[in-house]
Design a binder for these strands. Sequence first.
DNA 1: AATGAATGAGCATTCATTCAT
DNA 2: AATGAATGAATGCTCATTCAT
Lengths: 218, 218, 218, 218
Amino acid sequence: MPARQRRKAARPQELLDAALALFVEKGFAATRTEEVAERAGVSKGTLYLYYPSKEDLLKAVIAQNISREIAESMDRVLRFEGSSAELLRLMLREWWANAGEASCGGICRLMMSEAGNFPELASFYEAEVIQPARSLWRAVLERGMARGEFRPMPVESTIAALMAPMLFLVMQRHTATSCPQLGSPVDPAEVVERVAELMLDGLCRPAAAPSDADRRPA
Amino acid sequence: MPARQRRKAARPQELLDAALALFVEKGFAATRTEEVAERAGVSKGTLYLYYPSKEDLLKAVIAQNISREIAESMDRVLRFEGSSAELLRLMLREWWANAGEASCGGICRLMMSEAGNFPELASFYEAEVIQPARSLWRAVLERGMARGEFRPMPVESTIAALMAPMLFLVMQRHTATSCPQLGSPVDPAEVVERVAELMLDGLCRPAAAPSDADRRPA
Amino acid sequence: MPARQRRKAARPQELLDAALALFVEKGFAATRTEEVAERAGVSKGTLYLYYPSKEDLLKAVIAQNISREIAESMDRVLRFEGSSAELLRLMLREWWANAGEASCGGICRLMMSEAGNFPELASFYEAEVIQPARSLWRAVLERGMARGEFRPMPVESTIAALMAPMLFLVMQRHTATSCPQLGSPVDPAEVVERVAELMLDGLCRPAAAPSDADRRPA
Amino acid sequence: MPARQRRKAARPQELLDAALALFVEKGFAATRTEEVAERAGVSKGTLYLYYPSKEDLLKAVIAQNISREIAESMDRVLRFEGSSAELLRLMLREWWANAGEASCGGICRLMMSEAGNFPELASFYEAEVIQPARSLWRAVLERGMARGEFRPMPVESTIAALMAPMLFLVMQRHTATSCPQLGSPVDPAEVVERVAELMLDGLCRPAAAPSDADRRPA
DNA sequence: AATGAATGAGCATTCATTCAT
DNA sequence: AATGAATGAATGCTCATTCAT
């Protein structure tokens, strides 16, 4: 494969990466297409060869990063074999490690900001990301209840209660990149642990005696 | 007082209200100053009679809707006399009722989106909103520990764990206005209750036996 | 006459003075009507009570300062009784002292800059200022020739040769007010003397011998 | 070289020409950037591809038309070999032919009008135009004195006395383009000759007979 | 007569998008 | 495929002018 071909094949991805970074850093409106092209090492015109408009570029950015990171990283979780408390703790950590560390936080923030202007995108996001994520959490909670590890609970509101802090942390992390003042004063990974700890207390059966064993495993 | 004067006195507020609504609905960049003026029932020029630039308008919007709502609505909480668990539950509800129902969610979203482009604004927000809010939560947690109601805990990360879901819900609520797809499938008020329930389990001392009393007040 | 009346009577002049100062200092386009009003101690609206537009204000400014200063100050000159050389030297000094020291330089600059945009004004200026001034110089030159003091000469081009440096100095002086860099490095009054000296040499008959009398009057 | 490239290479000059013509004709403030672009045969946006702002455009206009014309056209003069009187007469004619016929008059008028609003520009002009021009005249006067052709004289004020009429004529010429009323009633070239004639009488040693020695004692 | 709040046409500037090369 | 010069619609902001009080 000649170099030219290799370059060409890589172009769309390079453009998406550049766009993701800039959209997340400066917001959609404040990012100029020329900047995106420049960062991807091509000219302005080339960008339009691959994506017909700035809005379409945003759609592609979201579409790609959505399916890839979230769904895939969560998949592993389902093959888990330990206690449901452990599983849930793992999920929270995974979420942070994958969604948080990578671009997903920026995507969330983008969606939060731009969804109103791109309803079509919002629907896509809802179907491709929100729904799958909710299903995943639902599976975990139901597994916990089925195995008698979790108390009976209102599932949907619990899902929301679990996702909310994680989504916020993940957004905050990416805001902090371009605006340190708004970052968390404590390490977000610690906050994730704290959320897990607090939530699990409420989720788990009081357990005969001091079930703290699985609540705070060394 | 002549009608002219009455109009003039009301103008700044009318403009702020219009700006708040539009900034929150469409984002800062996507809102045209002319729209703001139109919505306030004045002409483009009049807007500039009161606020020297679009950015200053944003600052004024934030300054007004922030310090007021948060600080004041939280104030009530401090005079509370019941158990710390009840106090915390009250705070969560208050936050939702005040910050959530009103404009604050939109402001949060705005800050999340625009902070990177307006560092000065971000600092202002951090000092005027984030810090006070954190102090308030800190006071509650310390009250709970001092009275032996809450277990010892890492305070700062707990604050973050409590604020995160609330901030997300509040942002989500306002996103949902312009984009129903991204709204919560369950009533956010219920999610607040669920967060309270789950968190309190983790915060409170196991309590002799059935501490369920304050966990699920009829 | 009540105070109110007195104020009212003085208004037009106060406005003209303020306008002259600002037009001359900043140029016509760069001067805002509000500034003029403010400087005159009235409100913006009041200005329009007296002058229907900014352009009309400029016309009034020019019209007033034109007739007043130039014509009148030159008038004195005609009653002069000494030698024509002395008369011409006096005229140059008068011009500088009156036109130069006062506002006339600014008016010249204004006309030079704005004439193209206000042809009507230019005609007025030509008729009211340029023509009379030229007539005055013509009278002096002809007096000098008639009395045998000046050599025969092409009158019109001599007039232009005399007026040109004076007009430039007078404009320069007013430019220097707002822009010291463009001022003359030597005292303009000295330059006027030097112009007089040089020109008179060319104007006067070689005069057998003692023409020095009127060239350097004690 | 492809046509596109040829166009691009020519653009800056085309834009400067258009800007010069319009600024000179209508003044800086009264000229719209769109007009400049239109006159250069491009769109509004293209102008900003080459010059980042209207003010920068003005700077470029001045920078280009100034140093070039003045310095270069005057250069020829220095290689002159005849009498100093002839040299001075030549300079005056050159000035008129070059500075006068070309754009310089308009630039002078522009500077006179706008200098106050662009101090930085004024300094540039002073250093690049005024100073060099003065140096040139100084060189001529000193040559004349050194060769015994000119009488001893106060050099600086003489320079000013020589430049003043020339600058005025040159400005007037360009005013006349857009406003014939203010033009000179006699051909400016004739006025230049007359200025030369008058001034030279004052500059040159009386030569032949009449003992001027006592007329201007050192 | 005087005010100053309100207006809106006008203009500099930006930037997504196009297209000749 | 790739470029980057060119475009022009869009928008923030200004300021001469109006008019209700």
